[in-house]
């Protein structure tokens, strides 16, 4: 069920110091709610991304607690303030214990 879980992130390549930049994230994930029944009539076990975090140079941008009410292939868009060049780090926490990560660099002039 959880095969091919691939994160995608998009941030601008460059910005000016002090800019507020848009950050978009998407991850392929079934977000199985635990409320659906399979063809055998039994409940399909819950398996969702239950937490998503984004940091910039180690400082938190957002920390999201996620419930089954978020759609399949979870999408989050938000804004970060960048004062210097650096790295965005993204983490998606799966119910099964897996943590999927991605990073993105931005050059700040």
């Amino acid at each position: 069920m959880a095969e091919n879980i691939v994160p995608r992130v998009r941030v601008p390549r460059d910005a000016k110091a002090g800019d507020v930049v848009s950050v978009r994230t998407l991850i392929s994930h079934p977000m199985e709610s635990g409320l659906r029944r399979g063809s055998d009539g039994n409940l399909i076990p819950r398996q969702i991304i239950n937490r998503f975090t984004c940091t910039f140079n180690g400082a938190t941008v957002v920390d999201v607690t996620v419930h089954p009410g978020v759609s399949t292939n979870p999408y989050f868009q938000f804004e970060a303030k960048v004062d210097a060049s650096g790295t965005f780090a993204f983490s998606w926490y799966d119910d099964n214990g897996s943590v999927y990560t991605d990073t993105a660099e931005i050059a700040v002039a």
Binding site: D19, V20, V21, S33, L35, T55, F56, N57, A59, T60, V61, V62, D63, V64, T65, V66, H67, P68, G69, V70, S71, P74, Y75, F76, Q77, F78, E79, A80, K81, V82
Partner: peptide, 24 residues
């Protein structure tokens, strides 16, 4: 069935308190 959808906590590097997502 469960009213919780998600909760965003903003950290020091947040550029605004504006978010978009897709929900059920």
């Amino acid at each position: 069935p469960s009213p919780d959808v998600c909760t965003f906590e903003f950290g020091p590097a947040a550029g605004s308190q504006m978010v978009s997502t897709r929900i059920r």
